[in-house]
């Protein structure tokens, strides 16, 4: 059977077209393979970059955390240092007050100067403008020799044996009312903020009875107690010294 030329031509054309199609498919496939490889490379590179960035972020977060810890430690150290500085300044002020009180009492040459020093200490260092300075007479009875801010009838009753103050004076011990009597409280003879008895050995040479504190004072502070102790010791010695001087002058 002879071949039909048209049919043969058709088959050849289909074969060629199929080959061409196959060739294009191979090319496309190759292109896609290359594209996939490129994309895979890019993906790997990007993944690496992401990992690097993530490591960088982690490192930065760690550094930030360390810095934050160091900053907190520094702030705490600064606070502590400031507190210490304030405490030292407060201690310096306290020492200055005690030094000045001691200096004034020991530097006083006569009774008037001692009384003046005691008054200034009570007003300016303790912060009380309602007080009386008492001294015993030869018979042992107490009398007011100087005062500030207290009414006359109050002063008249203060040194009597029936006075609530008599017990504190007789005890020869420091009496402190705690909580202290403040400016807003009522003035009460039986409630002195402090009664400092100044004595040398068994002999009482004077006493300071302090009543309401100044408005800016919220109570008795440790420094106040130290000033009371200092008054009890140094003012006592100063008054005793003057008393001896007066006795010597009397003999001469």
């Amino acid at each position: 059977m002879a071949n039909d030329p048209n049919q043969e031509s058709y088959v050849r054309r289909v074969l060629e077209e199929t080959r061409e199609y196959e060739r294009r498919l191979r090319e496309d496939n190759e292109s896609l393979r290359e594209l996939v490889a490129t994309l895979e490379c890019e993906r790997i590179a990007l993944r690496k970059r992401v990992e690097e960035l993530e490591a960088g972020v982690t490192q930065q977060l760690t550094e930030m955390s360390t810095l934050r810890e160091r900053l907190t430690a520094q702030v705490n150290a600064n606070l502590k240092s400031t507190e210490q500085q304030l405490a030292i300044e407060q201690q310096n002020t306290n020492l200055a007050n005690l030094y000045v009180a001691s200096y004034r009492l020991n530097g006083a040459l006569d009774r008037a100067e001692i009384v003046d020093a005691i008054r200034e200490i009570v007003i300016n260092l303790v912060g009380c403008e309602e007080f009386a300075l008492l001294e015993p007479d030869h018979g042992g009875a107490w009398k007011v020799c100087s005062s500030m801010g207290l009414p006359e009838d109050f002063l008249a009753r203060m040194a009597t044996p029936e006075s609530p103050l008599a017990g504190h004076l007789e005890s020869r011990r420091l009496h402190v009312t705690d909580p202290a009597v403040l400016s807003v409280d009522e003035l009460d003879l039986s409630r002195p903020t402090a009664c400092v008895v100044m004595s040398v050995g068994d002999e009482a040479v004077g006493a300071v009875a302090m009543y309401r504190l100044l408005p800016q004072k919220s109570g008795i502070e440790p420094l106040d107690r130290e000033i009371f102790d200092l008054l009890a010791a140094n003012a006592a010695m100063a008054l005793y010294r003057v008393k001896l001087q007066e006795q010597v002058k009397g003999v001469q």
């Binding site: 310096n92 002020t93 200055a96 030094y99 000045v100 009180a101 200096y103 020093a117 260092l125």
Partner: peptide, 9 residues
């Protein structure tokens, strides 16, 4: 007294 305290401060 006050002058001395101020001077010391």
């Amino acid at each position: 007294t006050v002058l001395m305290v101020e001077q010391m401060i």
